[in-house]
Structures are given as structure tokens and as C-alpha cells.
Amino acid sequence: MSFQIILDGEAHEIEIIHRRPHLKLLIDGREHVVEDPGHPGDGLAHAVIAGQRLSLARAQAEGGQVVRCDGRTHMVTLLVEGEEADEGAALSDLRAPMPGTVVSLHAQPGQDVTAGMALITIESMKLQTMLAAPRDGVVAEICVAEGDLFEKDQLLVSLQKEEGDAGDA
């Protein structure tokens, strides 16, 4: 279990190696002691790190944290080991999650779509649901027409296979 910390676009490894009497860390293999971690959370904080008192201001922002220290502002992101967008399960086929009727179609074959874009609206159990593209891609085929009835797991829309898909069985 370790973290990667990205400071102004540059990645560094940060590891916890000890906690008593003070927190001891490794930054890219260099050992440092945190005599006083200061207050957590947004706002002003004072910390004593590697023998020096630091005054800093921090705020959580989109994609990380902004830290201002010693009159300089930095953007920082923390990555937990193993954390990455999980794209493994993105499929090419959009299948019916339950039996129902096609209410409307929002895409045509050959159209470029992005993940999350509405492809088809269905009605089932008196409830209308929008089904979205599972990934970025090009619509290969729309297998149903407005008003069609379909069964659970029936193929509704398929996207063109990507190069990587060919080898998959």
C-alpha cells in the first residue's frame, strides 16, 4: 500500500514507514520526520516537517488539492496504488436490461458517440429508461426500431469493434 503524489505534474512516491514517536515518511526513498502534521482540511495550517515549521493554506479542488506554501501555489494530486480508471469491462454491445418497448432512438449507424451519450430510450414496467453508450466509438448497427418489443438480453445497439477486440474470443 503506497501512494503516488503528483506535484505540479511531477510524480513522486510517498510511503509511510513509521508512526511513533513521530510520523516517518519516505519521499522517493528519502526519509523525513513529521514532528507536527498540523490541522487537516481546507484552510490555513501549520506543520513541522523535517525540522522546519511551515505555514500553508490548502483547499480541495477539482482533481486534487491546491497548496500554498512559502508564497507559492501548487497543484497536487494523490493516487492510491492500484487506482486507475477501470475500462476493462467496456463492451461493444448494448443489450436490453429487461423486456420492454423501444420508445425512441437517438443515434444512427455510423455516428460517432462518446461514453454516456444517449443511444436509445426504452420503456419497461411503465418506466422510461435511457440507455447510454458504454464507451466511445462508432455505432455499427441499431437492431430495433421505435415501437419494437424486445426481450431481456436482446441486442439493441452495437458499436463497431475496436482493434483490440478482434483477438478476444
Partner: peptide, 16 residues
């Protein structure tokens, strides 16, 4: 830089 990285890390809930 190391001090700054530590100070920044301590601002993340997961790290803390």
C-alpha cells in the same frame, strides 16, 4: 520540495 509534498499529502483524507 519534500517538505511541500509531505504537507500536501497530509491534506488528503486518504493519506491522513
Amino acid at each position: 520540495k519534500d517538505r511541500l509534498l509531505i504537507a500536501a499529502a497530509l491534506g488528503f483524507r486518504e493519506f491522513r
